[in-house]
């Protein structure tokens, strides 16, 4: 699970990208993190993953504090960034080996996982080629595979479905479901509200650095006393801010 307590981050000392954020992402749930462009989603994810440090507040992942128990906390999660254009010069298999080395996955285990993931994502024939030769969707898939090769407790995915073909998109959603159902955590950001509505057990909507709503979709409809779609509620929520 992921916990944020009073997390604040400002740029240039004045503009508060994230303001006094409190968030609980429990185990066994797919948690959607929604918000318009520039709302503070990416800043929050960067703080959770240790890329940037909050000015104030505390972040723990499975009880491990990212600021004080950094390495242990980083071993808890796997992070898929929004731009998959990294490690382009490595071959698919070289990248997966790199990730397995960094997360110290034993030989037999990494072999099984790589083969299984490659099969599921239909990437077996591409592992010998450089990532540069991959299409956008294939790059996304290899990044996801790199993260899953160490079986992290917590998945943190930044816009993971962008560019995936229908089959891979379906596979990934299926895997997210399986992961959450096995009592672990999936935290992902998205702009695609239909996906969030269907896939997420719980969503948080952030705008201008503050959480506007956090809960299940039925709770949200109840809260606003309407039976509108998530999309119209989202637009309503973020319109006047």
């Amino acid at each position: 699970m992921i916990q944020l307590r009073g997390v604040t981050k400002s740029y240039n000392g004045t503009i508060k990208a994230v303001d006094q954020l409190n968030l609980d992402v429990p185990k066994g749930e797919i948690f959607g993190f929604l918000g318009p462009n520039g709302a503070g989603k990416t800043t929050t994810i960067k703080m959770v993953t240790g890329i940037i440090r909050p000015d104030a507040g505390e972040i723990t992942i499975n009880g491990k504090n990212i600021a004080t128990d950094t390495l242990e906390a980083k071993r808890q999660f796997g992070y898929v960034p929004d731009s998959p254009d990294l490690f382009l010069r490595l071959k698919g298999l070289e990248y997966l080996r790199f990730m397995a080395d960094i997360y110290e996955v034993p030989q037999q285990l990494r072999k099984e996982r790589i083969q299984q993931l490659a099969k599921r994502f239909d990437m077996s024939d591409a592992l010998g080629d450089t990532i540069q030769s991959y299409s956008h969707g294939m790059r996304q898939k290899i990044m996801i595979m790199g993260v899953l090769v160490h079986h992290p407790e917590v998945w943190i995915l930044d816009e993971p479905l962008t560019g995936l073909d229908p089959k891979s998109s379906f596979t990934l959603k299926e895997m997210m479901r399986e992961h959450a159902d096995s009592g672990r955590t999936v935290f992902f950001s998205t702009h695609v509200l239909e996906v969030a509505e269907k896939l997420c057990d719980r969503v948080a909507i952030i705008n201008k650095g503050k959480i506007l709503f956090c809960g299940t979709f039925p709770e949200m409809q109840q809260h606003f006393q309407s039976n509108h779609s998530l999309e119209s509620l989202f637009l309503e929520l973020t319109k006047h801010e």
């Binding site: 490690f87 490595l90 298999l93 070289e94 997966l96 080996r97 790199f98 397995a100 080395d101 960094i102 110290e104 996955v105 034993p106 030989q107 990494r110 072999k111 790589i114 077996s124 024939d125 591409a126 592992l127 010998g128 080629d129 450089t130 540069q132 030769s133 991959y134």
Partner: peptide
């Protein structure tokens, strides 16, 4: 860049995933 799109054979696969220490993996990258 060029792509072969051919499955890696078993021996090369085994060799290609042998574990290394973190710093060596990073230096190799």
């Amino acid at each position: 860049s060029r792509a072969k799109r051919k499955k890696i054979d078993e021996a090369a696969f085994q060799k290609g995933i042998r574990p290394r220490s973190m710093w060596l993996a990073y230096a190799d990258k």
